[in-house]
């Protein structure tokens, strides 16, 4: 290959990174302008997607980097839902503080959960977290103050605090969801660029190397677990604000907060920062166009994700990355693959 051709070839590929980043910036701009350009129904959908994105970023942090493959994420989301209800209804801290306290409560619940989670290795951990989530759901269904098994609606007085009319309320919730999503991504981005994150990236790529670098992997995994928990709880609080009620089956929904999330991350790309974003978008398309298929859309999602694991374990982003020479969001300081 001649030098000149080589240069143009490189240039073309770099352009792809720029295009990718351009799309991201455009997406961000669209999100900031969303309350003015979308109608209420669309805004609701985007709010929901932002909450899913937060859950996906956290699942990816745990499964993709920290080697904590959890199937019990819905447990912490549900705790967030219930804690928000408790603080908003039973105390007078105010609705916004109740949201923050919901995140804090989830963190508190994550502490004892660690005793179980970190004693189970590998695949056992996955089912172990599921048992924990099941216990949380069943436990929540035993408390009469929360309407026991049936659940309970958020009082109108609490709902009103977020806006007098529907439009105002949804805009408020939208902004909170956007702030949460941005915070979750930024916080995780900085975690990944810290010594802890670099160690985890090294572990993902090569466990021995990480040990040699001297990273305390156990400590890093604990940090990730505790990092994710409050975000799950905050997302739960916002989800409750959209649904306006809590109930064991809905607040602790394994389908909504774990199954869908796993599909999002696996299809988008486990262990990359771009993965959850791409996955959320693809999931949105699949849901829009295939939800009328009922159970078959689950079968499609399951089949696609199995195919993904077999063909490209790093998901759609892994496929794109074969062409695109660099990360859109450069988390690690490593040189791009294949250079």
């Amino acid at each position: 290959m001649t030098g000149v051709r080589n240069v143009t070839f490189q240039f073309d590929k770099r352009l792809l990174v720029l295009i990718g980043r351009g799309v991201l910036v455009l997406l961000a701009a669209m999100l900031v302008a969303a309350p003015w350009i979308f109608d209420l129904a669309d805004l609701q959908v985007i709010t929901e997607l932002l909450c899913l994105l937060v859950l996906a970023v956290m699942w990816n942090l745990l499964a993709g980097y920290a080697d904590i493959v959890t199937i019990g994420q819905h447990g912490f989301v549900g705790i967030g839902c219930y804690a928000f209800y408790a603080f908003a209804v039973f105390t007078d801290v105010g609705p916004y503080a109740a949201i923050l306290l919901a995140g804090l409560t989830t963190l508190v619940f994550a502490l004892p959960a660690m005793i179980v989670v970190f004693r189970l290795r590998a695949a056992y951990l996955a089912v172990g977290t599921w048992v924990l989530a099941e216990v949380m759901m069943l436990g929540a269904g035993k408390i009469d103050a929360f309407g026991a098994g049936l659940g309970i609606s958020l009082p109108v007085s609490v709902v009103r605090e977020f806006g007098g009319n529907i439009a105002e309320r949804f805009t408020t919730i939208y902004w909170m969801a956007l702030i949460l999503a941005v915070t979750a991504m930024a916080a995780t981005y900085f975690l990944m660029r810290s010594a802890t994150g670099i160690g985890l990236t090294a572990m993902r790529d090569n466990e021995e190397a990480a040990g040699a670098v001297g990273v305390n992997l156990f400590r890093a995994r604990v940090i990730c677990f505790l990092w994710a928990a409050p975000f799950l709880g905050l997302a739960g609080a916002l989800i409750t604000l959209q649904k306006l009620r809590i109930a064991p089956a809905a607040s602790f929904s394994i389908i909504d907060w774990t199954v869908y999330i796993i599909f999002i991350v696996v299809i988008g790309g486990v262990g990359s920062f771009e993965g959850p974003v791409i996955g959320t978008f693809v999931f949105f398309l699949i849901r829009e166009y295939l939800q009328s298929w009922g159970v078959w859309h689950f079968i499609v999602l399951g089949g696609v994700s199995i195919a993904m694991v077999l063909i490209e374990p790093r998901g759609i982003w892994g496929l794109l990355r074969r062409v695109v020479p660099g990360d859109l969001i450069p988390v690690s300081h490593r040189p791009p693959r294949g250079s």
Partner: peptide
């Protein structure tokens, strides 16, 4: 682990 969990999970 991740792959085997994901494949059997998808199967489920």
């Amino acid at each position: 682990v991740l792959s085997i969990v994901l494949v059997t999970f998808g199967l489920s």
